[in-house]
Design a protein around this nucleic acid. Sequence first.
DNA 1: AATAATGATAAGCAAAACTTATGAATATAA
DNA 2: TTATATTCATAAGTTTTGCTTATCATTATT
Lengths: 303, 303
Amino acid sequence: MNIRDLEYIKSVSKHLHFGDAALACHVSQPALSSQIKKLETELGVILFERDNRSVSVTDAGKDIIALAEDALSVIGNIYAAAETARDPLSGEFRIGSIPTIAPYLFPGFVTRSRAALPSLKLQFREDITDRLNEALLNGELDAAILATPPDSPKFNVIELYDEPFWVIFPENHDLQSFKRVRTKDLPTDELLLLAEGHCFRDQAMDVCRLDSSNETYTVRATSLETLINMVAARQGVTLVPAMALDPRRISGSGVDTQKLNDKSAYRRIYLTYRKSFPREALLQKMADVFCEGLPDTVKRIRG
Amino acid sequence: MNIRDLEYIKSVSKHLHFGDAALACHVSQPALSSQIKKLETELGVILFERDNRSVSVTDAGKDIIALAEDALSVIGNIYAAAETARDPLSGEFRIGSIPTIAPYLFPGFVTRSRAALPSLKLQFREDITDRLNEALLNGELDAAILATPPDSPKFNVIELYDEPFWVIFPENHDLQSFKRVRTKDLPTDELLLLAEGHCFRDQAMDVCRLDSSNETYTVRATSLETLINMVAARQGVTLVPAMALDPRRISGSGVDTQKLNDKSAYRRIYLTYRKSFPREALLQKMADVFCEGLPDTVKRIRG
DNA sequence: AATAATGATAAGCAAAACTTATGAATATAA
DNA sequence: TTATATTCATAAGTTTTGCTTATCATTATT
């Protein structure tokens, strides 16, 4: 038996036509026919029932072709493992993050990684923490940038940075008079929050010592942009993580900002990945690239 | 890459010695060495670190050899599946027959095949000839027991037996006085027939030299049971093939029977299958099992 | 009856894999 | 130190395998 034979029978079972199958395998039809015949002899099993007009897969053939596809998939993994071993900084990489990080962290990262990791093919996904953790577990993602500690014993993390929280309030709001705003100064009845499922909602409620029983507002934004716009419309005040403070957006938009001055008013950002993920070197390098471009409003942990 | 290459690297990783590994693979040491070198070139990864005195597996090699062992295991399953499938007397088999054969032939066949073909999983279908031929052609059936010669040049047949026709008439009918009934003696105006599409209808009309223009009756039964019951109700007389004569059903039911005494008053029963069907041995065996249990009223062709 | 489609077969060639013989490096023993 | 043994690599030549092109046989279509 031969790996190519497995490709041949897979191809025939797909095309149900020896000529087309051969074409797809880049060999002549007689070559494919004779290899299949030889394999059938070796196995002692007819895989395809064919007359001069049509081809079908026998019952035994179905079982064997399913196994052949399994084997080919494992062999594909061998090539992939080799490629990874050859250069862990190349290949595909799927990374996700949450709506309160991705828009502020990923754009700069893309730019810098083009230089630092030129042969890496990145794919991004933005979703809430729970779904990212799930995607990570089942292998849909290779890593995620999260604001929560590892969710599973199968995960490892690289700690990236600590991100303080800022208050955003309308111009001429009472908060303007404070030199240093602390959580106890916040008008919790005016506080605008993200929707359920967003971890920053929980984090904001946490530093303000609110729990769900305190909820009086029906505002459920799904982005910080929305929250800031609502503050500008004098609907209330809100908290945002430091990275969301874009001076160009803030200035002249009718809102003011202050750093929240409690020691505990920050969140830690992690690069999370499966312990079994084999490209450790790539993860370290990516963590570096993430941290390179961080603004001074956050506190790096690495480097 | 080659399946044998996977065996080679597995062997080397086990022995950590090229000579011993080659011995275990029944090849010369240079053959094994050169194949491994070629594989390493193909993958672009060194699998074994060797100096002239010792061999060790590289980190990349460990991953790849683990995958190679996975692949070899799946390939082992292919051989195992083939071995299971090789027994042509095992597996699924879908067979069909017509309403004037199936009820009389299949029950006994099921019983006997449980002994003779214990690992065969049989599926039965009862339908009219045309639809069985169609099902056979498009692979829905593997074989059919029919009373008509092969319908397509793609079919082969095994001839099973010749089945005489019998007359069934009400007790005290005129036919009772005949020692030997011949077709010319039949009261064709009293003849009850199956519905269109049943081959036995055509066969009965044939021996009686009737054609469709002679039709005067509206009786269109779809089973011989119905015909016999109608005869018992003195609605006419009918013909049935020999296998349909169940003495237990006939005796005391108000009907009498006589074998039709013309030489040509019989039909031949065939086991029909696609020429391309690969399990010839199974078909022969099944033909034997079918013929084993035939009553003396029919004339076997085989054995 | 002619044409097209399709899988099988044949003949010849090219590539791959194997064998034996030998080389090169190094550890071991005298 | 020098000879010997061990071990993987290399070389040369042969066998095996797999491929290509050309062709056949069968069957469906026009």
